[in-house]
Structures are given as C-alpha cells and as structure tokens.
Design a protein around this nucleic acid. Sequence first.
DNA 1: CGCCGTATCTTCGATTTCGAAGGAAGTTGG
DNA 2: CCAACTTCCTTCGAAATCGAAGATACGGCG
Lengths: 372, 372
Amino acid sequence: MRGAQGDLLRLVAAGHAESRAELARLSGLAASSVSLRVEELIDSGLLVEEGAGTSRGGRRPRRLRLSPSAGLLAVADLGAHHARLGLLDLSGTPLVVEERPCEIAEGPEATIDWMAAAFEDLLAAHGPPGVPLRGVGTGIPGPVDPATGRVVAPSRMPGWNNFPVAERLGAHFDLPVLVENDANLMAAGEARSWPKCQTLMVLKAGSGIGCGLIVNGALHRGRGAAGDISHVRVRSDSSVTCSCGHDDCLEAYASGAALMSVLNEQGIEVRRPADVVALVEDGVPEATALVRNAGRLIGEVLTVLVNFINPDAIVVGGSLSSAEPLIASIRAAVYERCLPLATRDLEISATRSGPDAALLGAGSLLLDAVLA
Amino acid sequence: MRGAQGDLLRLVAAGHAESRAELARLSGLAASSVSLRVEELIDSGLLVEEGAGTSRGGRRPRRLRLSPSAGLLAVADLGAHHARLGLLDLSGTPLVVEERPCEIAEGPEATIDWMAAAFEDLLAAHGPPGVPLRGVGTGIPGPVDPATGRVVAPSRMPGWNNFPVAERLGAHFDLPVLVENDANLMAAGEARSWPKCQTLMVLKAGSGIGCGLIVNGALHRGRGAAGDISHVRVRSDSSVTCSCGHDDCLEAYASGAALMSVLNEQGIEVRRPADVVALVEDGVPEATALVRNAGRLIGEVLTVLVNFINPDAIVVGGSLSSAEPLIASIRAAVYERCLPLATRDLEISATRSGPDAALLGAGSLLLDAVLA
DNA sequence: CGCCGTATCTTCGATTTCGAAGGAAGTTGG
DNA sequence: CCAACTTCCTTCGAAATCGAAGATACGGCG
C-alpha cells in the first residue's frame, strides 16, 4: 500500500478516522485529494462505504470501514507453557482467539514451526475463503532486538538466546513479520483503548513482571529491553539473589513466580498465577498479604518512573491484574510518594483490553508494516 | 514561515542539513522541489549560499546557511542568584553570552521585567542593526506547565507558584515566547551535540539535581515535571527529611546544596557548587569522598531509569559536572547494576555543549515556534 | 414546511511536486 | 592525464495535490 493511500488506510484501520472529512482533517491532505484516494481504495476493494455516521450539525458523513476481505493478520502471544493465537482483520478486530498448550522450553525451532502450523490451522478453520493473509506476528516473553527480530539474552527461555525468530517465522510466510516483547505488545494493544493518553505505562504482572512504555502515542523500544523493571533493587530486610546475579531484584519478591513459591513453601499449593488470584478472591489471608506486599514493592518502583516520565495513565494487565488488592496497593504507593504534579490526573487502573491486549497490539504494530 | 519552506529552514537552522541534497534526503521532498524552495528562500534573504562543503565522493555540495540578518533570539537561563543571558542567530549560534547577578527571590514581576530590560540592553549593545528580534525564551529552575507557560509548585522559588511567566514576558515583546524548565532546556541544547543519539538523558548537577529527557530526538515534557529525580528515595543509613516532606530524597544527599552544607559543617567553607569542584581538584579528601558518594547515589537512581528507558547516552552537565569523580562513580554504578542489553553501547559522559547548553536549547526550541 | 446555517463531499482549473534525464563538478584508480 | 564513477544540482514534461466554488444532505427554527 503505497504512500498517501497507506496513510489513509492506516487512519481508518487504527480507528482514528471514519469518514472522508475526518481523514482530511487528520491526514492534512485536501478534502478533494482524500476523496480521490478513497475512491481508488474502494475500487480496489480495500475500503467499503457502510451506512452513515452521526451528524455534527450538517450533512452526515458516509462511514468508511476496511473491507472484511481486505486481509487477515495471524498473531500469537507466547507464554512459558501456552500460547494465545488469533486471527484479526486489518482493523484489528479478532475473528477468533484460542489458547493452546505450548512449551517454549522445547526450543525455538520446534516452537516456531508449531506456531506456523497453528496459524495454518486457524486459517483453514476460521479464515473466510478468498481473504489473503497479510502479515504474521508474535510476542515473546523476553527481550527482542527490534532491528533484527532476534531474541537477546532471555532469562527464562533456554536455547533461545540470539535466535533469529523473525527470520524463521518469515520462512513459513512470505509476508511482513513482527516479533516483539510481550509486554511491549500488550502496551501497544492497550494504547488503542486509551486514545486520550499520549504517554502510557503498561505493567504486565504474571509469572514475571514486565512493562511496556508508550511515549507520544508510539511504542518506545529503546534497545529492545526498554520497559524492564524486573531487576530493580527493592528495599528489603532479607536478601534474595536473583537469577540475574544481583540481590533483591523486584522480580524475586513481587512476580507471580515469587508469590507462588512462597505460598507453596507455606503448604498452600498453587500452580499458576491465576491460582493466587483465586486465593485472594477467596479471602485467604496469606495470599492477600503477599499480593499487597507485591503491589507495594511494584508501586515504589513505579514511583521513580512516574516522577521521571509523567505518564497519563498506568495500566495493569497480566494474569495477576484481576487481584484487586494488587492495584490498590500500587495506587497507594504511587499516590503517596510521587510529586503532586505527576499524580494530578494520573489514572491507575486495570486493563481495558483484557487478556487479548498483546494480540491486539501485535495487530496494531503489524498494520504499520503491512501498509508501509 | 509557511509549510514546506519552514520545514527546510528548520532543517538548516537546526544543523541537520547543510546542502540541497541533504535537505532532499531529510525532508522527503524531491530534489527538484528542494531546489525551487531554496531558490525562493535565498531570494527572500533568509538563506545564503556560502562556499562549498566537503565532497562525499562526487561533486561538492554548495553549503547553505541561515542569513545572519534573518533574525535574532534573546534567551536566558535563570538561576537562584544569577542569570545567563544571550543573543543567538536563527541557527542557534551565540552572538554574545553574559552572566549577570539576579535574585529570583525578589519575585517574578521584578525578575521578568529585569530580564526584559537586560534583553533590550544586549540588543542595543550587540545586535547588528536592522536584524529583527524573532523570539524570546527563558529557563526556570522549577517545573513549568508547558501548556500555559506557568511555574507550577516550585520548591525554591518563593512567590513564583502559578505565576504566568510566559504571559508577563510576552507583554514586553510581541513575539513567540518560550518558558521551560532549565534541565529540559539543557537537554534540548545537549541533544544538538549528540546527533546520533535519539534517546538521551541529561543530568543537571548543580545546587539542585535535575534531569531532562529526549525521546526520539524530541524533548519529553510529560506534565511539566518530567525528568524529576530529586525526590527519589535512596538507600541510606541515616534519615534526612527533605523539603518535599518525604524521607531520604536523593536531593538531600547528592545535590550541590547538600554537599555544601556537609562541608560547611565540617568547617570547610564553600559558597557555590564550583567551590566543591575546586576542592576536589585540589585533592581535598573530604570533598572527593562526598562527591564519590553523591555519584554513587545518583548512579543507583539512574540504574532504574536506564533499564526502563534504554537511552543511547547519559550526559552530565551543571556546575558539578566538571568533577571527574562524580561522573566516574555514576558510570560505575550504572554499568554494575544495569542489564547488559541496556549498557551495551551506552555512553556516559560530561556535557559537550558546556555551560551554555540551556541557552542553546532555548534557541533550538524557540526556532520551532518562530518557524511555525 | 421552507429557509438558514452547517458539515460533507465533488468538480475543475491552477499550482505544486515529482521523477527521469542530463549537465556540472569532484574523486578514484589505472 | 584520462576514463569511470559518484554526488550535486537543474531542467522540463507528467502526475499529484490544492483550494475555491458548488452540489448534496442534514438539523434546527420560526
């Protein structure tokens, strides 16, 4: 999708514009040029006109949408023991989302080939006939070098270090390929649910702790590790050595994995972060106290970042995010210690995009590549 | 300066482009269009052709510069007891820079009116006749709301809270006005000296501690307090209550003011941060130890931010920055504790722009307003 | 209902921008 | 010193874009 037409498609697909007039306002092009381009896009089957929008005091706009047959995106979100997989249309709307078991410990080759097969599977079962696949993407639970699409020094992905994931995935599909850290994808997905927020911190609290950062509406990648907060030193009485070799990392105290190991030591059996949430909801005091403490520690770390970045909102996602005490204690810590100017109008709340945030984010980022 | 021509002027003025060919590459316009626009800009007296640049293996480019008579910017950097004032041409090159005593404690009205008079003074003494003033700007040692140009909750500027600085300054000059936090200006100025770095953290170590953040080549303002690190809690044995009401803020241990008060208590008389630097250079052990400790504390705070932001470089400026042990211990702390991916290729060094960084930054930001 | 104000969208001539081709000015390497 | 290659810049017809004017559609109000 070349140049100006691509820009217009992007605006429609991202949900920023719904009519020719809105496109003209947002793209900076003249209304007449927009009409011409839109005409062409409709003729080529990428856009469709669909009913009328609501009037703003004059003639009602003719609503534009991406054609459902314009294309599909296949996206995945890899976890340690399972993967979420989905098909999206070019506007980022999911056609189908599934969760399947999958062990990343089996190594990158096996995992990626399995993913490619699963994509084919989904396409055969749920892909409307004649609609072409336009891009594939996946989230990875570790740092990804944005330039090369390689995994870099992941802490809990044996055998994946420096593996060219994007290349391997691209070998199955001759299409744009996106490989990105899972917390970053989650942030990109969440960003679409917070259209008024230009700067966003998105915390992923699951077995690990990750964070994605949106600055000026765009994902901030840094060198591929941006958003890392797991290895911040926390104030603590005891001393625990983290897998990274340093003492008292946040991850060693506040991650889902850390909470689970404490609970298991106390004789309370838990297998997944969701079990911890269930215990909290059942009012088990040991679990609640642990989660509160984790929230406080995370909140204290966020304090530094909130003062520095001044985000418009902090969004908490991941499997632990449904534990209300977690968010409450994060909120308390941040509001207590941050500068008033930084917390004024700062919103801290749970995910709006839900468990598919990372898949939606993959769609959003892939779109840029597809319409480049 | 309208549209495309403004873009070209901005590129030349900001130092990004020096020839028609570079303008074409950076602006995205066709080479032929650039030639046309440049021709017009030369005819209207804003650009001048000046000799030839260095060859890149072919014909040498004809070097373009902003005409010295295209306009002037008057800029200032307010400190607690003195102000730096300067006149710049539109390319940001200083014609004259002076430091004059000035007490911000005398209140905003008196200070700003004094500044306006000082600008007129400089113009009369050093302004080439016939060259118009095109904009004025100043840095403020406290948070500034970027939307309104008001000072917001400054910690050491009695009487300034919520004062409309931009409005008052604008009353003297019917021109674009810039009012911005001093560390932010310093970051903007430093950014021009680090053209390869898209993401930059600029630390201002003077009587206070401030930091400015450049993301994707642009200043990140947040809500006006972005870049604040003074009130991060540090790990410490003793307990000191900061002026902000919390305990153990970085500022209370590592700012120039804190170092001075400790030295004075020890019977070593110092009056300005520069005196501390002099003591360090003279090898006074008490001073060196204090500065080392300050660097370590600052470095530990930066650790969190470096992991999170993944900057390309950390630049240390401010009056304490010439103390070599400060930078050395910051470097040590960051390299020791940060993730390898974040410190790989991370540069940590002293200011390249020198003491005028904030003035240069003011010029750089003002230019955008002037050429809008 | 009919008129007015507003917003959306289209038409069409004027303007701007593009891009391929070519001339100008240097470097490199035999 | 000359030929081959690069880079810089301009020329000129083709194509895209603009913007003013007009056509179309809607809400609101007497």
